[in-house]
Design a protein around this nucleic acid. Structure first.
Lengths: 338, 338
DNA sequence: TTGAAAGCGTTACCAT
DNA sequence: ATGGTAACGCTTTCAA
């Protein structure tokens, strides 16, 4: 594999000139430039990005850490990041953390070692303290889908409390009085926030509710089935289910049907995220829209800006820019009862 | 950000020793090693992966090019690659190509510039000739989900023809005689192969079929709706639909219902890929299982092996190892008719 | 066991 | 417009 020196030698010029041509720099005569280009083509020269990176302080690419690509919600994140990267002609170095703390930490570490300046991190398992430290150390690091008060100007997150409130409010307004909530265990705060939001709403009305907590990682279709199974086995009475996400909701619907219960006639169900899945299923799922793709784009732009040393002024922080608002999407899985 | 020299100075040793410690190399006294480690910790030293890469010929990470992360099928690919990467403690550099030729080419180029030796490429838009050339030039490049005869020992693909055959065979066996096929336009051969497979099967029976071709990129839920819309508008008669993928199938089911047609009572539907979606919907979708995750793992291992110069002997090529076989998954969207 | 020094492939500054 | 060359941060002989 030829180097810049080989090209220089072959073209009878200095490495400096070749470098200029590679970078489309000025100060190269037209004929020389042509000649060098020709030779580069002939010798199939391919720049060594590592060698370049060592000289230039500014690594233009952006690094991202994602928990699990298999989750469509996270795939949407990736897509959002990708969109702004493409539009700015930047590369993405993706490092997936497989939902365990060590590998998430490792993923960040690797990105740092490669000197990526702009980092978008979606961490589910790393604790606040560690992340705060990273944020202090790395100016271009932005946390996506997570809210840590101490560094909130470096976070882009969803107002989960409002989301939970929306779900509860809707269901109560439709006359439901016995409600089952399917939550998920884990370090992530969003479950907790959503529950808080629900409780705050529900407390205003004379209703009963029961929370079924799935174990970490069970926020899936199967998890939804299990949860309903449990609920039914325990003899819990409910006319509505508030699910942590769409997949759970769909699983719940399936298991309800298996037990001869129809949705929404016997039981109403509300999901969360508003993935394609929610539109595809029958009945179409009433859910909460999660603008995760926009959020991802925002996070990427923020990371890029911060990595260039722009906009660090704490004064200009406005929560509206960092906290996104979920929205209720009414479809067909909730029925009014009296 | 401290360099190896800073550490050396602070520890009163030579850069060489520090380097040895970093790489867990031998030839360093125990106390010296401890001291260096301590100083590295105190100064928060972080190795520069680029500088390392420039010295070492062997880039352990693996590079991957994917067309579109948003497609769950592709996400599964990523997941498969990830799994073997994690298990071998390797990093992944992901470069997404957004379904257009230029950006796919660009993605490969970038990986090459970073000197990644093992490349798993899922290219939808680059032509055979160009890929063959890449393959010749880069020993560790493997094509995932694509079959190019000239370099098939470097490809991992699905037997799409068999897949199409399976779909057709099943539907014919269930007594259907009027069949609608929803295909998708594009450079990718898999549509074509599947159709071929279907035709080959259908030709054996006295049945009619009609092909509705969606435009490139419309292999989605909405595409399925549109296709059925068109079919119905054109007055095509059919009792069964063979869809290019599950999303299309689900969209088709939805539109059929909108027209008062029930699945499978009025129309039977078969999908392809066997994504979660297929299990979640009602009725559960009969489909073809696509072992894409296994394939991705295989491709990754192959790329890794090839990049180390192992197993290039053409003699040992066996098609069974490279071509994967799809399987029919019977669920509830097909009904026997007479 | 340790260190000096020669690279690795580029870039960028300073001359010419 | 061009070339020489130090420097980037690290690894790896080769001596000591």
């Amino acid at each position: 594999m030829p180097t810049i020196k080989d090209i220089a030698k072959a073209a009878g010029v200095s490495p400096a000139s070749v470098s200029r041509v590679i970078n489309n720099g000025p100060k190269v005569g037209a004929k020389t430039r042509e000649k060098i280009k020709r030779i580069m083509g002939e010798m199939e020269y391919q720049p060594n990005a590592n060698a370049q990176a060592i000289n230039v302080q500014n690594n233009a690419s952006i690094g991202i850490v994602l928990a699990d690509l298999t989750d469509p919600l996270f795939a949407k994140m990736a897509h959002g990041i990708e969109k702004v990267a493409a539009q700015k002609d930047l590369q993405i170095f993706l490092n997936s953390g497989a939902f365990d703390q060590t590998s998430e930490l490792n993923a960040i570490e690797v990105l740092l070692e490669h000197r990526y300046k702009a980092l978008v991190v979606h961490s589910a398992m790393i604790d606040d303290k560690t992340l705060i430290e990273f944020a202090r150390k790395v100016p271009g690091l932005v946390l996506l889908n997570r809210h840590i008060k101490e560094i909130e100007s470096r976070c882009i997150w969803l107002d989960d409390k409002a989301g939970g409130g929306l779900m509860a409010e809707h269901i109560v307004e439709q006359g439901h009085k016995k409600i089952a909530i399917i939550a998920v265990d884990g370090i992530q705060n969003n479950t907790r926030h959503r529950i808080e939001g629900m409780k705050a709403q529900l407390a205003k009305y004379p209703v009963h509710y029961q929370i079924e907590v799935l174990e970490q990682g069970a926020a899936t279709y199967e998890g939804g089935e299990v949860a309903v199974q449990n609920l039914l086995a325990r003899g819990v009475e409910f006319s509505a289910i508030l699910a942590y996400n769409d997949a759970i909701a769909v699983g719940a619907v399936s298991m309800l049907k298996a037990h001869g219960l129809s949705v929404p006639d016997d039981v109403s169900v509300v999901g969360f995220n508003n993935l394609i899945l929610a539109q595809c299923m029958k009945p179409k799922l009433t859910t909460i829209h999660n603008p995760i793709e926009e959020m991802a784009m925002k996070a990427t732009e923020l990371a890029l800006r911060l990595s260039k040393g722009e906009g660090t002024d704490v004064a200009s922080f406005s929560i509206e820019e960092h906290q996104y608002t979920p929205e209720l999407v009414i479809r067909q899985s909730v029925k009014r009862i009296d």
